[in-house]
Amino acid sequence: MIPKSLIDVHEIPAEITGLVKESVINTFASIIGSEPDYVEQSEQASSLNGIIGNIAVFNQHHTLSLMIVIPRETALKLSEIFIGVEIPFESDDMGDLVGEISNILAGDVAANVETVGFRGQSSLPTATRGSDLTLFLPNKPPTEKMKFTGFSGDFWVNMALSESR
């Protein structure tokens, strides 16, 4: 369903974004026990004090990059829910946790997008923590930003679809 060349593709197909949205809701519901709400037409915060999980679902033709953007307060609440105790935001364990959440999300995304013909595997996750972070998404590949709000707080999932090289 996705053409091999993305030269003329300006938006990520709605089927893919819909499935990623579903995966985000399912993943965070299974972690925090309640479904987060998707927030329509929201703007991303101009600067972030938080932690970002990066992961991709890819095959030989295309890469769907996912960026899970978690503000500090949301990350602290997530750690309490996931592990049973709040872990220090500045700790290596926090990076490990966000990496693992990214991993779980990518697994769900990979299973979901396979149903529409995007058969891929997950990359290994990475995590970046900082304050006053500004997020840049590339201009050329089609991208999408999604905001969610839930029991644990607000978070965003940004995605970019590109040709694999």
Partner: peptide, 9 residues
């Protein structure tokens, strides 16, 4: 014990 979910996996 894994995040991979698709039937093929």
């Amino acid at each position: 014990v894994t995040a991979e979910k698709s039937m093929g996996k």
